[in-house]
Design a protein around this nucleic acid. Structure first.
Ligand SMILES: [Zn+2]
Ligand SMILES: [Zn+2]
Ligand SMILES: [Zn+2]
Ligand SMILES: [Zn+2]
Lengths: 135, 135
DNA sequence: CTTATAAATGTTATATTATTACATAGTGTT
DNA sequence: AACACTATGTAATAATATAACATTTATAAG
């Protein structure tokens, strides 16, 4: 039987799958070298293997990079159709990160025009504050 | 005569001034080690000196960090009253970065409520697209 | 002015994050 | 088979950032 063409298009390579699984299971954003350490038993031994998989997963919208933290989180917005229009809230005490999926927010931002009348379909927004627990 | 109390409160230390001047003159965001290289002739010889000044300048709202680029830009919003609520547009071709100062945008974002009804006064937003020249 | 305190600086070493470069192996197409 | 393309493996190195500790300078109080 094997894997159909369409399935293949959406399927992850071995390293991508290993790394995605780890990130997806994690309750918190993972850093590249934390990932590396945790997948060494599965045969991924060097930074480029990790960074290459991370790059592809980000491209695909399966994960997002939290830029202010240099860490990666799985997309919890049903594999972000809007991989390139992301918003997060970050707790400044416990570092909990939550992906925000608000139609209103994304609509506001994608239709936002700057002084030159320019619109942007791609953006990254990071909110900082205290989460429920830490308040 | 010397410097008055109020002036002093707002004045920068020697290293802070050197590094702020460099960033403020620059037409593009500067990276920490680019800054280090450029201020060595002025006596700043090691990374901690640069990073410490950068930290303080960010705290004061005199400069902002462009997280997706690991680079620093002077605030062009009259020393950002909203040092902690920043928005930028970034050209994906020429890497030109512009600080966005839109009352509407900042009002929308500071009054934005997440699913838990939480508001955030602190945020960083980076828009990506093509600048006028590169379009 | 002296003492106390905090802020800033100088310096060395090291930690963390990310990429370059090149060789090899698999996958799909013609 | 030949080709193009993607993914992998590996070593070395580049780029970004912090820790730790000694010293100096600025500010404020007594
Ligand atoms: Zn997402
Ligand atoms: Zn928290
Ligand atoms: Zn500003
Ligand atoms: Zn441009």
């Amino acid at each position: 039987m094997g894997i159909s063409k369409i399935d293949k298009m959406h399927s992850l390579s071995k390293n991508q799958q290993i790394i995605f699984d780890l990130i997806d299971k994690s309750p918190e954003p993972l850093k590249a070298y934390t990932i590396l350490f945790n997948v060494q038993k599965r045969g991924i031994k060097a930074p480029p293997q990790v960074y290459r998989a991370l790059d592809k997963l980000v491209e695909m919208g399966k994960i997002h990079k939290i830029e202010s933290r240099n860490a990666f989180i799985a997309c919890h917005n049903s594999s972000c159709q809007v991989a390139k229009a992301t918003a997060f809230s970050i707790c400044e005490i416990c570092e909990k990160v939550t992906e925000i999926s608000s139609a209103g927010l994304s609509k506001y931002l994608t239709s936002f025009k700057d002084k030159d009348g320019m619109k942007y379909s791609k953006y990254n927004l990071e909110f900082f504050g205290l989460c429920k627990k830490c308040r």
